[in-house]
């Protein structure tokens, strides 16, 4: 490599090298430790099952045979990490997305109701917060209902919502989204009430000297001031709405979606399938939170946040 060619790749590599220098070491140690613990746990959890199977078959088994069995069984009590990865690879990469066995297909089904639910929930949360901030009486009359709505176990009302909506002809993605919205509006409401009331006396006095209307004060002061609070809430809300969408798939006997995969897996004792679906859900949640975080950075930068 020539001297002139050096700067460009180095400039590109610098952020990466910084990440590795900063966090990679500790992160790698933690991941390795978790993997080690997991393998030990898998061996212990599956041992008796595998040993019994050998005994039942009357096959004399060495320690090594049983050990291999605990890490390679078809329906282990606790699958080993490499089994889950293999299953993920098989159902994500090797299976066409149109297939019923494709995790991409199931992930998309859940994602679509998550996104719709998130949109409905976030919008509801914002509207509720605006109403609460502007009508003092609402805070007293509405807040207890909002809070108690979150104390009801979602598993208990999910079937009710689905049945009621189904009876008036609403099926498909919407009922699932509504359950997901039901869970995720709450942090948005709480965060936005705090954000909308965050402007200080001086900022509000300024609006008063202009005798600004309530609408002007909302659009030009309260809403811009609440944006950082909004994004903090949205990050929580988007993860919750994924949980809501998955939970909504359980009581409906949904044919597709990560929830349906979980359910089918547990019917047939397909533990590897269950774990793969769980991992897919976790990866999806992390990706959603990351996307919200990215939008947050862009928006706050446009609003003059310090870098």
């Amino acid at each position: 490599m020539t001297a002139e060619a050096l700067p460009a790749p180095r400039a590109a590599a610098r952020p990466l090298s910084r990440i590795f220098a900063g966090a990679a070491g500790p992160v790698a140690v933690v991941v390795l430790a978790l993997l080690a613990v997991w393998y030990v746990a898998a061996v212990l959890a599956n041992w008796s099952l595998v040993a019994e199977a050998f005994a039942r078959g009357g096959i004399p088994a060495t320690f090594g045979d049983v050990l291999a069995g605990t890490l390679g069984g078809e329906r282990p009590v606790l699958p080993a990490p490499h089994q889950i990865l293999a299953e993920l690879w098989k159902t994500v990469v090797d299976t066409p997305v149109t297939s019923r066995r494709s995790l991409v297909l199931h992930g998309w089904v859940t994602l679509s109701s998550t996104l719709l639910g998130f949109a409905i929930g976030a919008l509801t949360g914002i509207v509720l917060a605006v109403a609460i901030v502007h009508l003092r009486m609402l805070e007293k009359s509405l807040m207890p209902w909002i809070i108690s709505s979150q104390t009801v176990p979602i598993l208990a009302i999910a079937p009710i919502i689905i049945v009621v909506l189904g009876s008036i002809g609403i099926r498909g993605v919407l009922p699932k989204s509504i359950i997901s919205a039901y869970l995720c509006f709450f942090p948005v409401t709480i965060g936005m009430v705090k954000g909308l009331t965050s402007p200080d006396v001086l900022q509000r006095d300024l609006m008063r000297t202009y005798s600004a209307s309530v609408a002007d004060t909302l659009w030009k002061l309260r809403l811009p001031a609440s944006v950082p609070y909004l994004f903090a809430s949205l990050k929580v809300a988007v993860a919750i709405s994924l949980v809501g969408a998955i939970v909504a798939e359980l009581p409906t006997g949904a044919q597709a979606g990560l929830g349906a995969r979980l359910l089918a897996g547990s019917y047939y004792g397909q533990t590897i399938q269950i774990w793969a679906a769980l991992f897919a859900a976790a990866i999806l949640a992390a990706a959603l939170v990351a996307v919200v975080g990215m939008v947050e950075r862009l928006v706050l930068r446009a609003m003059g946040a310090r870098r």
Binding site: L202, D205, T209, Y210, D216
Partner: peptide, 27 residues
Amino acid sequence: YGYVFQSPALYPWRTIEKNVMLPLEIF
């Protein structure tokens, strides 16, 4: 009246120009 407060009371999410234009937008 127009009021100049003891501290600037600019809105941090607006540029300087946009801050100056705030009353004009409202009016």
